[in-house]
Design a binder for these strands. Structure first.
Lengths: 149, 149
DNA sequence: TTACGTGCAAAGTCTTTGCAACCAT
DNA sequence: ATGGTTGCAAAGACTTTGCACGTAA
């Protein structure tokens, strides 16, 4: 259903504007982007668009359930289409690489939390930090960030 | 070993100062606190301490592996003692309650990611969003944030 | 036509940085 | 004594807000 976004807007009493389309397209194209990146992307098409519009639009689109965000890095919210929300982000502490894994990978977790705590996990909002296959050492001590003195 | 923090500092060539002690105590006492909250707490004891010192100290203590932080809410880093790092935070979307569960609860996840992706999960950094037992409805549709129009 | 949405600029929040005085070692 | 630390204030990064004009419906 990624084509009826405009219906969703209108159905909720909001207007369909080029800015909103541009932002949604940017989120779709970039897949994982900060407001700033989305802003930059949008500007390549329409120079007039303002940052505040991007923020306001992202907020609206999130309210409507069209996009979602997670906090992958320090202070930078990352937006993505809600239709891709049902995956989990793996973020590598060392190289910063973001990998997506299917929600199936975390089903054992969801089940465990459900049983142990009665907690209903929001899988689409889940971000997992650690070391990716390429960065993890052979015998990894699960270390903290190495001090730089 | 929560008493040898000063040795850790000195061993790494850093000085032991009242400010650093106060910040560490605040993190310990508050358990889950933002820099702002830590600052407020520290000020109750020593009025002279400055915000920038709190930030600098948190950064240092994190480098040394004495404290750690996670991103629990919108843009707000939450600090806690690294000795309590090996637990997972469950954050309720509706009531905001933060629950801690033992890392054992996520072992199935860690194992699954290890096998499927070769990804080494940093359990201490893991924050899971969802609905807590008290907030989840009987037949919960895992909804987005409700629109306020 | 009507009022929702946008651009613009200013204000706000949170965090970082430069520098001289200060104090742990 | 000596250089790591701190306080202070200013700068920075990111996000929000007020208002008048533009525009979707």
């Amino acid at each position: 259903m990624p084509q009826e976004w405009d219906d969703t807007l209108r159905a909720s009493g909001y207007r369909v504007t080029p800015q909103r389309q541009l932002v949604l397209e940017a989120v779709s194209r970039l897949e994982h982007a900060t407001p700033e990146e989305i802003y930059a992307d949008v500007r390549q098409t329409a120079r007039g668009v303002n940052v505040s519009t991007v923020y306001r639009t992202l907020e609206l689109l999130e309210q409507l359930g069209l996009v979602a965000h997670s906090h992958l890095f320090h202070g930078a919210p990352i937006y993505h289409l809600a239709t891709q929300a049902q995956h989990v982000h793996l973020v590598c502490h060392r190289c910063g690489q973001v990998t997506e894994v299917d929600r199936a990978a975390v089903l054992p977790l969801v089940t465990a939390l459900e049983e142990a705590e009665g907690f209903q996990t929001d899988v689409g909002h889940l971000t997992i930090f650690g070391l990716c296959a390429g960065c993890r050492p052979a015998a990894p001590p699960l270390g903290q960030v190495s001090a730089t003195a």
